[in-house]
């Protein structure tokens, strides 16, 4: 057994999400410690996004338990789970297209704070994510990478203690990707994170511990170096990714 210094903040036991015959998530036992930064990798269709959707209440698991800081949340509503202090960036950006970038972020900050504090928090977040130039633009008119940043801004402005990011660097330039990695490390100072990514370089930049998903199950859980030298892991995932 590992030493139990830190508190376990996310735990799933026997988690299953089946769509008819498709076992998108199957018997997953997962644990995340406080302030941990975990990466989730795996081939397309491995069930990573589905796993996130179960954690955030967008899907009700077919079977199994989920506890977040001791609260059982399997089948709870999304807004209830978010209210525990969980922030998520989804794979397909979920933003308010018809509103400005600033208002998107304000809506997140205002959920937890009064008017004055929400305004300063919004301004700080815009500064921190360098969204000043696009703050008055409608988010629907922005490029994919910028929409990702607006969504990250919404996550950050809520000051969550648990952050789930589904492919945060997708569609970003090299420079943006590096900044995303920086931001993730910064968030990690106050929050635990689970990050799904396909970009191995990016993962090496941020991660300590990596969980490899395959066909709805956890195949391995180790450091990136250990995983990349594993034969089985190379077969299912890394082999065709260099």
């Amino acid at each position: 057994m590992k030493k139990r210094a830190a508190e376990t903040v996310v735990e799933t036991r026997g988690l299953c999400m089946h769509f008819g015959g498709v076992r998108a998530v199957d018997q997953v036992d997962f644990a995340l410690e406080d302030r941990e930064l975990r990466c989730l990798i795996g081939p397309n269709g491995a069930g990573k996004s589905t796993f996130f959707k179960c954690l955030t209440g967008q899907l009700t698991p077919t079977a199994g338990e989920i506890t977040i800081r001791g609260t059982p949340v399997a089948g709870a509503q999304s807004h209830e789970i978010a209210s525990l202090g969980v922030g998520i960036k989804t794979q397909v950006p979920n933003v308010f297209d018809g509103l400005t970038a600033e208002e998107n972020i304000w809506l997140s900050a205002r959920r937890w704070h009064g008017g004055a504090r929400a305004r300063t928090l919004t301004a700080e977040t815009i500064e921190r994510l360098r969204l000043g130039e696009i703050r008055r633009s409608l988010v629907g008119r922005l490029a994919h990478g910028q929409r990702q940043w607006v969504e990250l801004g919404m996550v950050v402005a809520a000051e969550p203690w648990l952050v789930l990011l589904d492919e945060p660097a997708a569609g970003m330039t090299h420079e943006e990707t590096a900044r995303t990695a920086e931001l993730i490390l910064e968030i990690n100072r106050t929050a635990a994170l689970i990050v799904v990514e396909h970009d191995m370089q990016f993962i090496r930049m941020i991660s300590r511990r990596v969980t490899l998903f395959h066909e709805g199950r956890i195949l391995m859980e180790d450091t990136m170096d250990a995983i990349s030298s594993d034969r089985r892991a190379r077969e299912v995932y890394l082999g065709h990714r260099a």
Binding site: T56, G57, Q58, Q77, S78, H79, A82, S83, G87, I88, T90, N94, V95, F96, D97, G98, L99, E103, W106, L107, S108, R110, R111, W112, M154, A158
Partner: peptide
Amino acid sequence: RVCVAIRENETRAELLG
């Protein structure tokens, strides 16, 4: 503003709490 946000994207509004 929250009502408008829900009109724009109900999932995101829920994920914000």
